[in-house]
């Protein structure tokens, strides 16, 4: 007989073990972890990395033959050579070919561009997630812990940031400071997207700071910093992790949206949103240029959302997986 999670909970396991076990049981989240890992691996190994400044680039080559900015002779009217339908369905058999995702009218390789775009979008997503989480956690915990005047000051500041539309931030960074690349853009976007997280963390701190273990720590002579980071924050980690993943799925849609309207990543670099914007009018003639970047955005956002859902279930002890009647009868 297999034990349910709830029975295990009685067996005296640590919180981390419980969370890990619950997460590993969440099928959709586990599948998403593997798919997302696959996409990251594919994106970063295929066309390689490009670091350093524009003047002194450091290139790490990948295994894929074409670069994203390289112009190649157009083969086969640019149609994709990838064929995932086996022989008995369409009679041609599996094939990868020279340009699996096709080419645009100039001759850019579709696969290389989508991979480069996915790199940019993933990088922007992680950087926004990191920056926003750090700021959100610090502001939220200080406001929730000290309450009073500090709290209202910080929360009004949060309100101020919420009201500034992110499009404006994109416009200012893109046009007045100049093209600093997607990394700087991501950091600036992170500076404006932490507000939801800060509010959640504050709420969590407001309730946790009244608990007995905080009093105990204070009586034992712990400093404020120690109480915040060693005692309260670990207990609020669930909220932080879950909202960070949700923030990241919103971040990739934000980046692609900004690039789409021309405020995000721009030439010579490409991002998934930029590729869609570039190719939306070519839909009737070259639909593959439009389909592949979109599918990658959806796949990445979907994976992150499912991972977030899995983490939420794993951290929240209230969401119980009720065994079905059949399982109980065994």
């Amino acid at each position: 007989m297999t034990q349910t999670i709830e029975q295990n909970a009685v067996a005296g396991l640590s919180q981390a073990t419980l969370v890990r076990r619950r997460f590993l049981r969440h099928k959709a989240a586990m599948v998403s972890v593997f798919v997302l890992g696959g996409i990251i691996l594919l994106a970063f190994t295929s066309v390689g990395l490009e670091l350093g400044t524009e003047a002194t680039p450091i290139r790490v080559p990948g295994w894929y033959g074409y670069g994203y900015a390289q112009i190649n002779p157009v083969e086969n009217a640019g149609a994709p050579t990838l064929d995932i339908l086996p022989e008995f369905i369409d009679g041609t058999g599996l094939a990868v070919g020279n340009h699996p995702f096709g080419q645009d009218e100039v001759g850019h390789d579709g696969f290389a561009r989508v991979m480069r775009g996915a790199q940019q979008s993933l990088m922007v997503m992680f950087v926004i997630g990191l920056v926003a989480t750090i700021i959100g956690v610090v502001i939220g915990s200080v406001a929730g812990f000290y309450r009073g005047r500090t709290d209202s000051l910080l929360m009004r500041f949060t309100d101020l940031i919420i009201t500034i539309p992110v499009v404006v931030v994109g416009a200012v960074i893109g046009r007045s400071i100049g093209n600093l690349g997607s990394f700087i853009l991501a950091i600036f976007l992170g500076l404006f997207t932490w507000t939801g997280l800060a509010r959640l963390v504050r709420g969590e701190f407001l309730s946790l700071r009244e608990r007995e273990f905080v009093d105990a720590a204070r009586v034992a002579g712990a400093s404020d910093r120690r109480i915040i980071f060693r005692h309260i924050l670990p207990n609020a980690i669930g909220v932080v992790v879950v909202s960070t993943t949700l923030l990241m799925s919103a971040a990739i849609l934000l980046e692609t949206g900004l690039s789409f309207i021309g405020f995000g990543v721009r030439l010579p670099d490409v991002s998934l949103g930029y590729l869609i914007n570039e190719n939306q009018t070519a839909f009737a003639t070259r639909p593959w240029l439009f389909w592949y970047p979109g599918l990658f955005i959806v796949a990445i956002a979907l994976c992150v959302n499912f991972i977030g859902d899995g983490l939420r279930d794993a951290f929240d002890p209230r969401t119980k997986r009720v065994p079905k009647a059949k399982e109980l009868a065994k």
């Binding site: 799925s249 849609l253 692609t256 949206g257 789409f260 949103g273 869609i276 914007n277 939306q280 439009f290 979109g294 955005i297 959806v298 956002a301 979907l302 959302n305 499912f306 859902d309």
Partner: peptide, 11 residues
């Protein structure tokens, strides 16, 4: 609903 949530509106 997760799929819809992950769709870029311009796409």
């Amino acid at each position: 609903s997760f799929l819809f949530y992950s769709l870029p509106v311009f796409w």
